[in-house]
Computed example of a mutant assay.
Amino acid sequence: MSAHTPVPSVTLGSMAELEPLIQGRETPLVIRGLCRDWPLVKAGLGSDDVAAQALLEGYRGDPVIAYYLPPEQKGRVFYNEAMDGFNYQAGKLPLGKVLQTLFEQQGKPEAAGVYVGSTDLDHYFPGLSAQHRLPLQRVRPMAHLWLGNQVRIAAHFDFPHNLACNLVGRRTFTLFPPEQVGNLYIGPMELAPGGQPISLVDMDAPDLARFPKFAQAQAAALTAELAPGDVLYLPSMWWHHVRSETQFNVLLTHWWRDTPAYLGRPNNALLHGILALRSLPKAQRMAWKALFEHYVFDHDEGDLAHLPEGARGMLTTPLDELNARKLRADLTNKLKR
């Protein structure tokens, strides 16, 4: 992988400085050592065994979803060769069994990949929840734990903002701005590891003959190398490839969105756009693009000055919950026709 520009980093005097720092921020930022005093971070600095024991002590006991990659996959979570399935096996296992399998791989020259992703902290690890939370006041993020050995997660994006706390081991994030989507060669939308479309480019060995536009994405890429206790602020919609660098790694993500859930998921609008617009002749697509830019992407407060406030209807911003539900019901009924 070629060298990329590092993500800017800061060190804060206290946790209280975090929220004002990221409020409205649109680019990534690394906050060094912010979580260094958390119990799991301290346990991991002792040893992998101590960190694993701390996880088990905080664990509720419900089986977690675990992934196993054969050694020949070299830790890359991806598709099978036919791209009609994936290159890993998945199943529900007790955490103790997952950790046993993970530690059995340590020291092997060609280790199998072992991975547990996006596991709700409050439900599965209630004993860790209280002491492993960022003190955010304006938002209430969902906290999810990730653990495994040296695996690689293909570049993908998430709609929510994210504060990713690196608790045990080291991780490297390679980040791409949202506008680089056309240079990342995205795989199928219907079938993707983790349910989120991914880049088909192998970030360790990019095939520029097959993926020539990826060179432009590389030029725009940023890299964040996280040590235990470091936190990465990852804004909404930024593409990110994640590499776990050590034989035992634990990450805690904090996800939140800027708008209330009753406004729905933007991905649903994208799917409807594919259904209703993608097959139109180009001239009609461009006409609809102009309408979307006017009503959705480029609007500002002055656009509705010619309308009385009571006549603005669904264009009122922000849309309240009652009118959002009316709009959703109307759309649902029209989709049934």
Rank of each mutant, 00 (worst) to 15 (best):
A311C: 11
L319Y: 00
R325M: 11
L291D: 06
D320F: 07
D303S: 03
P308R: 15
L280E: 04
W288R: 07
N323R: 13
G302M: 02
D300C: 10
E293F: 05
H294L: 09
L319H: 01
D303N: 05
A287S: 08
K282V: 15
R325N: 07
D320S: 07
R278H: 14
E309G: 14
F292T: 02
L307P: 01
F297D: 02
L280H: 05
E301R: 13
T317P: 01
H299L: 09
D300H: 12
F297C: 06
G310F: 05
D300T: 06
E321Y: 05
H306I: 07
K289Q: 15
N323C: 03
D298C: 11
E309V: 13
D320K: 09
A283Y: 04
R278T: 11
Y295D: 01
V296L: 15
E321S: 07
F292L: 15
L291G: 03
K326M: 12
F292D: 00
D303H: 03
A287K: 08
S279I: 05
R285Y: 03
D320I: 09
K326H: 14
T316D: 01
H299Q: 11
T316A: 07
A305M: 09
R278I: 10
D298P: 01
L291Y: 11
M314F: 15
L307I: 08
K282Y: 06
L315S: 08
P308Y: 11
K326R: 15
D320N: 15
K289G: 08
L304F: 04
M286S: 13
H299D: 04
A287Y: 06
F292S: 01
R312E: 00
A305V: 14
K289E: 13
P281E: 04
T317D: 09
A283R: 10
R325P: 00
L304S: 01
D303E: 05
D298A: 11
E309W: 07
G310Y: 04
W288H: 09
L280R: 10
V296M: 08
R325S: 06
H306C: 06
T316K: 08
F292Q: 01
A324R: 01
R285H: 06
R278C: 10
R285W: 02
F292G: 00
L322P: 00
L319P: 00
P308D: 10
G310H: 08
R312C: 03
E301Q: 12
E321W: 06
T316N: 03
L319D: 00
R285K: 15
T316C: 05
L304I: 04
A290M: 07
L319C: 03
W288L: 11
A305H: 07
A311T: 07
G313F: 09
A287R: 11
K282E: 14
A287G: 03
F292K: 02
P281T: 05
L315E: 04
R285N: 03
Y295F: 14
H306Y: 10
M314G: 08
T317K: 14
G302L: 02
R278N: 13
A311W: 12
G302K: 07
H299V: 12
L319A: 01
N323T: 04
D303L: 09
A311I: 03
V296A: 07
L322A: 15
L322H: 13
P318V: 11
Y295Q: 05
L327H: 02
M286E: 15
L291H: 11
L291I: 10
G310P: 02
G302P: 00
L304M: 12
H294Q: 09
H294S: 04
F292E: 00
L315V: 06
